[in-house]
Write a protein that binds this DNA or RNA. Sequence first.
DNA 1: ATGGTTTTTACTGCGTC
DNA 2: GACGCGGTAAAAACCAT
Length: 326
Amino acid sequence: MSETTIRTSDSRTEQLNSQRTETNDESEHCPECGGSLVNDSERGETSCVDCGLVVEEDEIDHGPEWRAFDSSEKDRKSRVGAPTTTMMHDKGLSTNIGWQNKDAYGRSLSASQRKKMQRLRTWNERFRTQNSKERNLKQALGEIDRMASALGLPENVRETASVIYRRALKEDLLPGRSIEGVATAALYAAARQANYPRSLDEMEQVSRVERMELTRTYRYIIRELSLEVAPADPESFVPRFTSDLDLSDEVERTARRLVEAAREDGLLSGKSPVGIAAAAIYAAALLSNERVTQSEVSEVADISEVTIRNRYKELLEADGVQNMAA
DNA sequence: ATGGTTTTTACTGCGTC
DNA sequence: GACGCGGTAAAAACCAT
């Protein structure tokens, strides 16, 4: 006996879940007594005519939220149009003014009306392109935000990146280039300017654009906006790498000193800053008797072991010379 | 496109644990 | 014998011209 009740309740929930759309269909019947069901949209309930069992309650009323007492009132209150579509950038909601100089009844317009329509077309077009830039910007800023947080870049870098992007947009640098590409390039430039440099490889990880496009776009916007981006300072990589390698503050300080020594000897120009930083850390760890292998450093710095070897010899040499002189 | 510089790849030998 | 390290040559990448 208990089994049967369980089964009926099961079948009931099944009906409710899978056939929700058909509850007011004539073919529906009461699970208890088999009587026909009636839908009361005022109460949001579906109930049985015979036994009064409420089959479904708290339904969502999909009807209009207003009431109309005659057809003219219905015309006034009803407000629906064509469905929106995401296929169009503005969901198809922007205004279009037809090119034909005809009114709604197909009659030709007077000369003054024609001129008026022409002016309206012009302005409408202007506002629409304005909006397209807004949307463009919005998407780009979203991308910048996403990439910046993926790379752990602080707020001010995002700010700078968005300023750069806005300028690029304003100078009409976008046509022919992807939003994503310019956004990535802007962020790359901003990060470098703010001394939180990220390598091209790192940018590539979080961006959807190819390396080639990124470098090309980057060069382009740097040139066109005449941004001044100094070559990355090796020291700005030092803290990140030391912490990635779990090395002490002492190593970090020594590494900085080595970089400085190299700078004074003019060893920095032309060499990759990342390589210098990696080598400085390796050398510093050696001097502090902390264990790191070249391959570990090359791993976190994303630089070859050979480069580390070549650089760190030079660094120690420069540092040695300084110590001799002192 | 070209040439010069830097970095990477691949391979080798040496010493140590 | 595996590993870390140092060195080398050639290839590849990068950059300015």
